[in-house]
Design a protein around this nucleic acid. Structure first.
Lengths: 232, 232
DNA sequence: TCCAAGATTTAGGCAAGACTAAAAATGGGA
DNA sequence: TCCCATTTTTAGTCTTGCCTAAATCTTGGA
């Protein structure tokens, strides 16, 4: 295959690697070969080879045995893919009746195929949204992206009213579970009880209380409630 | 590359080959290696190799030196791609402000990436159209496609009022030229003069006459005007 | 300090799909 | 009928990106 190009001069595979490395690097430290391999469902040896090629192309900084980091150019391409992915997800929900648990796979394929023009048309059709259906910020066309001040629900201090900012999972079953319980970005809640040893939390939304398991709670990224934001 | 699959169990390349062979076979006779090579902008030797592989896979019937024809399975896949292509073109025009001269390349990439679900959502959003912006019939999901009784404008008998059915080109400049002159599917016209030696034709649309060059005329596929169809 | 477990890289292969060059088949015209 | 131009196929390479197996590095614990 003549390595079909999208508009970066870069193949689909490379786009996927850069996007994953971007995601894995949000904590600041470099992404390890095995993390990348697990995220892309590839053998570590394959990832090792690709990392080497991407370093030679100037898209990654790689110190052998120490992990890989995006260069400015690598980050530029990664952010372009993230913008595409999140705008496509938003459009599928806004215009074509998709639910937030079914958009991921579709966006994963389309992000490699759409033109810049189509992306901007979709953005314009939605009034240039700044977050996708999961609450993840959409990078601007110039590559700038909103800073993220949210933390996982289990790390939130008790007593303060907080707001769900982002739902941090691609798991369709978990997303449906959250939707059924009204746990979605923008919802305000209060942690009223917290079991030890990573146990479940009890939260109040409006007048109703519900218990949220540890795994579910970890997927909810929250921040202090701002403005007039609504409850359920 | 692990030969990314769409839903046919077939690669993008194979989808392109089958689509092109379908188009080249509309006259009934098999598609030759060189025709296919020209249509796909590949070297004939590459096409020879692929034809062999596709025959072995049961997607083509191939008699060496005699050209290739789609099997039923090959035709099924080809028609699926044609449906996708034409629905995508239609959707881009209907929902995202594309003009008919800019949709082709975008559809050419998206047709390999969209899911069946997305295709059907787009079709539903448009009320299940039966023709794309160029007037080309959209195969149904079951693979059935409307018979085409149109002929190129230069082959139309003089004197009868006819209707433009399809605009048979992907050339953006030609498409813009046609749009500017109101030459689009559904328009009725009458051939009032015809120069010899593949010269220009004169046609009347409503009360206006215009001269149409030979090449342009060949791209307009026409049939006897039916129903109440409108003029310009 | 040293070693073994785990992570990473290197080495060697494979498949798809493209290419060029060379060989073989076809078919129209003399 | 035969020949030569054209078309098609075969043969041999190349690139991308994946794999497994083997070698090498790193690091925590004895």
């Amino acid at each position: 295959m003549s390595a079909a190009i999208a508009g970066n001069g870069v193949t689909r595979s490379v786009e996927d690697y850069l996007k994953v490395i971007y995601r894995l690097s949000t904590e600041g430290r470099p992404a390890s070969t095995s993390e990348i391999a697990q995220a892309l469902e590839l053998a570590p040896a394959s990832v090792s080879g690709m990392i080497k090629r991407l370093s030679e192309q100037g898209l990654l900084d790689h110190e052998p045995y120490r992990g890989a980091q995006l260069t400015d150019e690598g980050r530029r391409i990664a952010l372009r893919m993230v913008r595409r992915h999140r705008l496509i997800e938003s459009y599928l929900v806004a215009a074509l009746g998709y639910s937030w648990d079914t958009v991921h796979d579709e966006a994963e394929r389309l992000e490699h195929a759409v033109s810049d023009l189509l992306i901007e048309r979709m953005a314009a059709a939605m009034g240039h949204p700044t977050a996708d259906p999961h609450g993840d910020p959409i990078p601007a066309a110039d590559g700038s992206i909103e800073a993220d001040d949210s933390v996982p629900l289990p790390d939130v201090p008790s007593g303060a009213t907080i707001e769900i900012r982002r739902v941090n999972t691609d798991n369709p079953a978990l997303l449906r579970h959250l939707a059924e319980r009204g746990l979605r970005p923008g919802v305000r809640l209060l942690v009223t009880d917290r079991q030890p040893f990573s146990g479940p939390l009890t939260v109040r939304i409006g007048d109703a209380e519900q218990v949220v398991g540890a795994e579910v709670a970890r997927s909810l990224r929250c921040a202090p409630a701002g403005g007039t934001g609504g409850a359920a």
